[in-house]
């Protein structure tokens, strides 16, 4: 008796919690509303099954609790019932799977007008690279990374020269323009995740992974690293600002291209070098010999 009531309370409580919960997902800010819809669909079907199964169980507790003189039914099998249940479940599963796969199919097909943005992850922070006028990102390799070339762009690749480098952790996106996020990592696994965009994917060292979305709501959002990457994992945050085209262009203009960057570094270096030459002629000579032989 009491047992049944408590179990009933658990079920009713679960439903009530779900209905009245103040904890719910953040307002969506991308095109992936379909993900939310599939979740809601799963809630209806899955939740329905949960409630039915549990209510049936509670009913059994009320109805069939032990009585000295009652004898349980003897019925090892019921082929018809079992087959029927199998088919109903299969249908339920198919009803969940089919829409899910359709959306997934969209998720992995990047629209052709998407802008490529490289997200470079490291322990523990983010950098970004945007294509320049040619709309192409230059190829890159971890092995090329140096003080002069923080992204490891291939010096021989002409596409790389006009790439725009963003060495801060704040990324701006243009509203209503699809972006393809190209993920790179220079050390361990990371994951570029903005809850409001719903989408995510791991950054894997050694390969470039991607996903896409279309931000559709202005605002500033927090980026969370969603794949464990060592002690700094929880602190590996950044921010994304979605804004209108005009503001976005303004922001873009503030940043240097790779060739600008190289030129600037070159100046700095030669300044430094000049100093060093003054300071210690011999040593710097040796150094440049070494550099050349490399």
């Amino acid at each position: 008796m009491w047992t049944g009531i408590v179990f009933l309370a658990v079920i009713v409580g679960s439903i009530a919690f779900h209905v009245f919960t103040p904890w719910w997902w953040t307002d969506i800010a991308s095109n992936w509303g379909a993900m939310d819809d599939t979740i809601i669909l799963t809630f209806w079907i899955g939740g329905g099954v949960f409630i039915l199964v549990c209510l049936f169980m509670v009913y059994c507790i009320f109805k069939f609790s032990y009585k000295e003189n009652r004898k349980a039914e003897y019925k090892p099998e019921d082929k018809k019932l079992e087959t029927r249940l199998t088919w109903i479940t299969a249908l339920g599963v198919a009803a969940l799977l089919a829409p899910g796969l359709l959306v997934w199919n969209e998720y992995i097909r990047v629209p052709p007008n998407a802008i490529n943005i490289e997200v470079m992850a490291w322990q523990w922070g983010w950098k970004y690279r945007l294509p320049g006028e040619d709309n192409k990102l230059g190829t890159s390799s971890v092995k090329n990374i140096s003080d002069d070339n923080p992204f490891g762009i291939n010096n021989d690749d002409p596409h790389g020269k006009d790439d725009i480098l963003i060495e801060s952790s704040e990324l701006h996106l243009e509203k209503n323009r699809p972006v393809k996020i190209l993920l790179r990592s220079i050390d361990v696994l990371h994951n570029f995740y903005v809850p409001q965009f719903r989408a995510k994917m791991d950054a894997v060292p050694g390969v470039i992974t991607y996903y896409w979305f279309e931000p559709n709501k202005n605002g500033e959002y927090e980026v969370l690293c969603a794949e464990y990457c060592g002690v700094g994992h929880y602190a590996m945050r950044a921010s994304v600002v979605v804004q209108d085209k005009k503001d976005y262009k303004k922001w873009l203009a503030q940043h240097k291209t790779f060739s600008n960057y190289l030129a600037e570094k070159f100046e700095q270096n030669s300044l430094k070098k000049a100093k060093i030459v003054k300071f210690n002629n011999l040593l710097s000579n040796e150094k440049s010999i070494l550099k050349e032989s490399n």
Partner: peptide
């Protein structure tokens, strides 16, 4: 359901 996993994973 792979697409639902994306936000929840």
């Amino acid at each position: 359901n792979v697409i639902v996993d994306v936000p929840l994973s």
